[in-house]
Simulated assay, not measured.
Amino acid sequence: MSTNTSLEKRLALVEAAIAELQKQMAVPQPTNWLQQITGSFKDEPAFEEVLAYGRAIRQGDETLLEVQDKL
């Protein structure tokens, strides 16, 4: 008889844990901010220019920056 009682208690604990996990899964998880903005600038003409500036800075190409300063 005590085996059944013990088994019933364990089953009740498992069911409670499953219910808690289901509740946690129902709450929407925050998404990565980078995934939210990825691709949002693809049709923006200035974005390509920004990428070119970043590339020039990383590669040490100061000429692109100097041309912009003269404009």
Rank of each mutant, 00 (worst) to 15 (best):
S40L: 14
L71P: 00
T63L: 09
A16I: 00
K42V: 04
Q59R: 08
E8Q: 09
A12D: 04
A56V: 03
V67C: 03
N4F: 11
E49I: 15
E20G: 02
D69N: 14
L7C: 05
A12Q: 08
E62A: 15
S40M: 13
Q35N: 15
G60H: 02
G60A: 01
K42Q: 13
P45R: 05
E8V: 05
S6K: 06
P28G: 02
I18P: 02
T3W: 09
P30W: 04
T63G: 06
L13K: 12
Y53V: 11
N32E: 12
G60I: 02
Q22R: 08
L21F: 04
K9M: 05
V14N: 04
E8Y: 05
E62V: 14
Q22E: 12
K9H: 01
P30L: 06
Q68P: 01
N4G: 01
A46R: 06
L65S: 09
L51R: 12
I57W: 07
S2T: 10
L7R: 10
E20Q: 10
S6C: 06
G60N: 00
D43P: 02
V14T: 08
W33Q: 15
A17K: 08
G39A: 00
L11H: 03
R58K: 15
L71C: 09
Q68E: 13
A17P: 01
R58T: 11
L64Q: 03
Q22T: 05
Y53I: 12
A56I: 04
S40H: 05
E15R: 09
A17W: 00
A52H: 02
L65W: 01
N32Y: 07
F41I: 10
K23T: 14
Q68R: 15
K23M: 12
Q29G: 02
E15V: 03
S40I: 11
K70S: 11
V14P: 00
M25T: 04
R10V: 08
R10N: 08
K70G: 00
D69K: 15
K70A: 11
T31M: 08
N4A: 11
G39F: 00
G39K: 06
L51K: 13
W33S: 14
P30T: 02
D61R: 08
E62N: 13
L21D: 08
